[in-house]
């Protein structure tokens, strides 16, 4: 069982000025997930009549991409290949002080406490992250189109992106290129994505720039912190696709 000090960013709403506030939590089990530890804190705050800490969460099994949080200076905390809900408290020691902040990026404004608005990602998806297929009943069986195992695997790896925004939060430039690279790649690698490949990459990159994300400088931090292991190769592929579509 652990006793911890938490330094948490509290911000009333989008327009208020926030600040770090210290809290103590006791009797935390190493088997708890980080979000369960946050639940313990919030129970404690509700019992004492204080406002609980707002944070995003949904599936709590690492697939929805909702839980965010910048924990001890890293997106989703110190573990690798996990979202915050999959981060176990055994990663911390009794007596630790844990700093918890919202994802920081101009394109991810804070709504309240640790909750940020990631709709900029949605708008990038709307700009071209789809295939316009005819689903009226005469759609061709996908298995009838030959696709190499390598391309299928790489497309699947790119499609594993859950759009959580850890890449942006981690990047010193708040660049969204790992996210957009993954979304462009998952289609660019498959024959179904070829028809709209050119428009897709141009539109998605234009939207990404419009949202105010920074420029990628290839630090590679995004790849390390990505809970789904999205590779930098996807950014290089997007660069190629973009250049191909531009000339």
């Amino acid at each position: 069982m652990m006793n911890l000090t938490l330094k948490i960013w509290r911000q009333k709403d989008a327009n208020s000025k926030g600040q770090m506030v210290d809290y103590k939590v006791t009797e935390i089990s190493g088997h708890m997930s980080f979000l369960e530890m946050m639940d313990v804190l919030n129970e404690q705050l509700i019992n004492t009549g204080e406002e609980p800490v707002a944070f995003d969460h949904d599936c709590r099994e690492g697939i929805c991409g909702m839980c965010s949080m910048y924990i001890n200076g890293e997106a989703h905390g110190p573990d690798r290949g996990v979202t915050t809900c999959q981060l176990h408290m055994r990663m911390f020691k009794d007596g630790d002080t844990i700093t918890i902040e919202p994802f920081r990026a101009s394109a991810f404004p804070v709504i309240k406490d640790l909750v940020v608005d990631r709709e900029s990602f949605e708008r990038i998806q709307h700009a071209g992250g789809f295939v316009s297929v005819n689903t009226s009943g005469n759609t061709q069986d996908a298995n009838a189109i030959p696709i190499s195992k390598i391309a299928a695997d790489e497309a699947m790896d790119a499609a594993a992106c859950i759009g959580c925004g850890a890449c942006v939060a981690t990047c010193k430039n708040s660049s969204a290129m790992l996210f957009v690279g993954a979304k462009v790649s998952q289609y660019a690698l498959l024959p179904q994505g070829q028809v709209e490949a050119k428009e897709r990459v141009l539109s998605m990159v234009a939207q990404m720039d419009k949202e105010g994300f920074g420029n990628c400088t290839n630090t590679g931090a995004c790849e390390v912190e990505c809970p789904k292991g999205i590779s930098l190769e996807n950014i290089a592929r997007m660069n190629r696709e973009y250049i191909k579509a531009s000339v």
Partner: peptide, 8 residues
């Protein structure tokens, strides 16, 4: 692109 910096 990142006006508010992290405390840590």
């Amino acid at each position: 692109a990142q006006v508010v910096k992290y405390a840590q």
